[in-house]
């Protein structure tokens, strides 16, 4: 038996969430008295692959196949299923993101294994196998029992964190069968946003709302983000108005993020927005309306005009960095 982790890389480097998934899997493996195997698909170098051992993976299955250059839900599911069979995995861990959701759901049918999506912690019980997961877009938590012998979990990002536990790791080349009949979708073109921090990977996010008054006022948001090495985000009205691109929209119907620190600048905090950011460890709100619901969710708040506060905040951060 083993706990299998589906890893994800970005330009050959593992995403932050991958190390979190391995940490999480290690915690489960410890309780089950088994070990963690990680599956890597794509061109990832040996040093990166070995880094998974820092978080408890004892084996890494390294798949490199040109047919798997792009995410293909059907073919990738087959690869994971073959890894599950090879390693006799009875728990399979994915990230609760677009690719994780896409493959985990297919795998659930392929293996007839129950699936818990958006888990927030390690299983609270192993018999029955009970997982706590977000429901109602993080407005509540649900305890879901998986009734099958093989279980699949997608972990909510930044819900568990990183736990280092260095072990000896073996990297093994793995060549699963990839059938042409499962390659029915083809990627024609890729548009990558370069020079920007991945919003879902960002430790700090600076986000602007309607209170920013217009796209011409986004300079301070970007400046603060650059100073802090943060990602930039926005509320729904802002992306709907076209002030900012859609990929920055965080909220119930946009991106769900869980950074360590979230700056809500001129965001009133509609319940739909809070649904997308409530996993943040610390929320700072700047809004001129003292009754704005964002202050209910915030840890620190400034009631004031965001366009006046932001330059002062930037100056204060610069002072700190200069120390």
């Amino acid at each position: 038996m083993s706990v299998l982790v589906y890893t994800e890389n970005w330009d050959g480097k593992f995403k932050k969430v991958t190390f979190e998934l391995v940490s999480y899997a290690q915690e489960i493996a410890k309780k089950l008295g088994t070990s963690v195997v990680a599956l890597s698909i794509g061109n990832v170098n040996d040093e990166q692959l070995k880094a998974l051992g820092n978080y408890g993976a004892t084996k890494v299955l390294n798949v490199q196949d040109d047919k798997l250059k792009w995410l293909n839900n059907q073919a990738y599911t087959s690869v994971v299923a073959q890894a599950v069979a090879k390693e006799n995995a009875n728990v399979i861990i994915f990230a609760h993101n677009n690719s994780g959701k896409a493959i985990a759901s297919r795998l659930s049918v392929r293996l007839k294994a129950g699936l818990a999506t958006g888990a927030t912690a390690v299983p609270s019980s192993f018999d029955p196998f009970t997982v706590t997961k977000k429901v109602f877009t993080s407005k509540a938590l649900g305890n879901i029992v998986i009734k099958t012998p093989v279980r699949i979990i997608t972990l909510l990002q930044n819900a568990f964190g990183l736990i280092e536990s260095k072990v000896e790791v073996a990297v093994e080349a793995f060549q699963p069968e990839v059938k042409d009949s499962e390659l029915k979708t083809v990627v024609k073109e890729v548009n990558k946003i370069t020079g920007k921090i991945l919003l879902t990977d960002a430790e700090i996010v600076v986000s602007g709302g309607r209170g920013m008054k217009g796209p011409e006022n986004w300079g301070p948001i970007e400046e603060l983000a650059a100073l802090l090495g943060a990602g930039t985000a926005c509320s729904r009205p802002v992306s709907d108005e076209g002030w900012r691109p859609h990929d920055e929209h965080t909220g119930q119907t946009g991106k769900v993020i869980a950074p360590n620190l979230y700056f809500a600048c001129g965001i009133s905090g509609a319940i739909q927005h809070l649904g997308g950011i409530s996993g943040s460890k610390c929320i700072v709100a700047i809004n001129k309306d003292p009754d704005a619901p964002i202050f209910e969710a915030a840890d620190y708040g400034i009631v004031g005009d965001v366009l006046k506060v932001l330059p002062e905040l930037i100056a204060a951060v610069k002072e700190l960095k200069a120390q």
């Binding site: 970005w10 995403k15 792009w70 995410l71 993101n97 677009n98 690719s99 029915k184 979708t185 083809v186 990627v187 024609k188 073109e189 890729v190 548009n191 990558k192 946003i193 920007k196 991945l198 919003l199 879902t200 990977d201 990929d247």
Partner: peptide
């Protein structure tokens, strides 16, 4: 949508 971008896909 992919993390940090967009892909055009044919199926």
């Amino acid at each position: 949508e992919i993390d940090g971008g967009q892909e055009t896909v044919a199926t």
